[in-house]
């Protein structure tokens, strides 16, 4: 591994990353959307069941979000924001999953089994997952519930999925070698990519779907990197189609 090349790439990636982060929130907030189709919403509610995500449970009646753009100054009118509770639950699960992945990478960085080059990848990918979580925070953190008794609730911040952390943590900190550790990270990335595909098939809200569509390719590329470092056969990490087979099922990780 050429350390100078790695540093150069990391710097460039960081610059590109900042550029992407600069435009992402504006992109996410520029549009507003129509109400969801009732039949599809009902179907997604059946899919999600009664998922509650630890600190991220959402109970929202009349959801609203400030719609930006078009009006100069900070007096933007409040208009209805389309995501229904089922969409918000799913998006908040993705938010929590990103926090979980970032935490897992943090644990991985603390181990001593990786080469400096592999550790560089860990730091880069952890940064990506933090950025994904931040994007969800920007997007969902503005969603407010209806005022009840003089108090207006907001979407609770997501937290790492504890049961997943409990399962992954010992595998990471106890990994006897780099290959074992990278295998865990690969499983997280494959699971994340599959989860976003699962979400895309269920999210009704266009803005949330766009967000998932911008993150899925990145998790997919993460999976390729770990697969190649592990020298996994190409047919194992390059199927013709992304599937949901490895997805983290929201219902299984309900808090």
């Amino acid at each position: 591994m050429d350390a100078r090349a790695l540093r150069r790439m990391a710097t460039e990636a960081d610059e590109q990353h900042r550029e992407a982060m600069r435009t992402m929130p504006a992109d996410l907030h520029e549009r507003h959307f129509s109400t969801a189709d009732p039949d599809r919403t009902a179907s997604r509610r059946r899919f999600l069941g009664t998922v509650g995500l630890g600190g991220a449970a959402i109970a929202i009646a009349g959801i609203s979000v400030p719609v930006l753009g078009g009006v100069a100054g900070a007096q933007a009118a409040e208009e209805p924001y389309a995501p229904d509770a089922a969409d918000l639950q799913l998006a908040t699960f993705a938010w929590a999953l990103e926090l979980t992945a970032a935490a897992a990478y943090g644990l991985a960085e603390g181990t001593k089994v990786l080469t400096s080059g592999e550790a560089e990848v860990v730091r880069l990918f952890q940064g990506h997952h933090k950025d994904h979580a931040a994007a969800f925070e920007t997007l969902l953190g503005t969603v407010k519930g209806e005022e009840v008794g003089g108090t207006t609730s907001t979407t609770a911040a997501a937290t790492p999925i504890q049961s997943l952390v409990d399962g992954l943590g010992p595998q990471i900190t106890g990994a006897p070698d780099a290959a074992s550790l990278m295998q865990v990270l690969l499983s997280i990335e494959e699971g994340a990519a599959a989860t976003y595909l699962l979400a895309l098939g269920n999210l009704d809200d266009t803005l949330l779907a766009e967000s998932a569509a911008k993150i899925l390719p990145v998790e997919s590329q993460h999976a390729v990197v770990w697969s190649q470092l592990l020298e996994v056969p190409i047919e194992d990490y390059l199927p013709a189609f992304q599937t949901t087979a490895d997805a983290f099922d929201p219902a299984s990780y309900a808090g």
Binding site: D2, A5, M9, M24, P217, V218, S220, V225, Q228, A240
Partner: peptide, 27 residues
């Protein structure tokens, strides 16, 4: 998602031994 994987594979060929170049963007 698969086209993105194709990109990562090609970037790996373009800049071997530089895995961070294979997934440079957060979004």
């Amino acid at each position: 998602g698969i086209e993105a994987r194709h990109m990562a594979v090609l970037l790996g060929i373009e800049t071997p031994d530089t895995p961070t170049a294979q997934a440079p963007f957060p979004f």
